[in-house]
Simulated scan of single mutants.
Amino acid sequence: MAASPQHIVVMGVSGSGKTTLAATLAERLGYTFAEADDYHPRANVEKMSAGIPLTDADREPWLRTLSRWLQAEDVAGRSSVMTCSALKRRYRDILREGLPDLIFIHLDGSLELLSERMVHRIGHFMPASLLRSQLQTLEALEPDEHGIVFDVGRSPEELVAAAQEFVTT
């Protein structure tokens, strides 16, 4: 009998390297990849582009869309890796609906390092001015959540190798 599909969310604030890690990890594992930012409704993107933080009410429909995507991949028998800030426990609970074994890889770093990365990032709608509000909103993974925290000061290659080891052992 084939193993059940595995689903991974690479989480953290903007500028933490979620997309780099998730896309590379998905490619190495042969999993489907999704960038959660691609699922934001236009109103959310416009709000963030204007430097206005999203509210829980703004995020909930987006998170439910992401949860449905993860569940559809599971039903189809495909393993997946998704990026998503997943800043609060309740957001992660929405993502985890129907997928109790959902794995979270939290990319964490200092305000200074993350700010530096965001200043040099090209083509993303999220302004560096929202980083502080994201860090204030961020709730650490709790002991009953299946996940791990990695320091983004490590090289992308080290992070991918550590993530791959975590999810395959």
Rank of each mutant, 00 (worst) to 15 (best):
T137W: 07
Q136V: 10
E73A: 12
A76L: 10
I122C: 15
E142D: 15
E97H: 13
E139W: 08
A72E: 15
L63G: 04
D93L: 13
G123W: 00
L99Y: 08
I52N: 02
R90V: 15
A86V: 01
H106R: 12
E145G: 00
A36G: 06
S85N: 10
E46A: 08
R117D: 11
R42P: 07
V81P: 05
D144G: 09
S115F: 10
F104S: 09
Q136P: 11
L111D: 15
W62A: 02
T137V: 12
M126H: 09
R132L: 13
G30K: 04
K47Y: 01
S79R: 01
I94M: 03
D56L: 04
D37E: 01
D144E: 14
T137I: 06
P127W: 06
E73I: 08
K88E: 09
H106L: 12
L63S: 09
M118Q: 12
H124P: 05
L141T: 02
S129N: 10
R121C: 13
R78G: 07
S133G: 06
H146E: 15
E60T: 06
H106A: 14
P127A: 12
S115A: 15
L141R: 00
D93H: 11
R96S: 14
L130D: 06
Q134W: 02
R121M: 14
F104G: 08
D37Y: 00
R59L: 02
R42V: 11
D38C: 04
L114C: 07
R68A: 15
L29M: 10
D58R: 00
R90Q: 15
S67C: 12
L107E: 10
E35H: 05
R117T: 14
I103Y: 10
D58T: 01
A36Y: 01
A76P: 03
R42W: 03
P100G: 10
M126N: 09
D101N: 15
E116V: 10
L113K: 08
G98Q: 05
P127K: 08
M82F: 13
D37S: 05
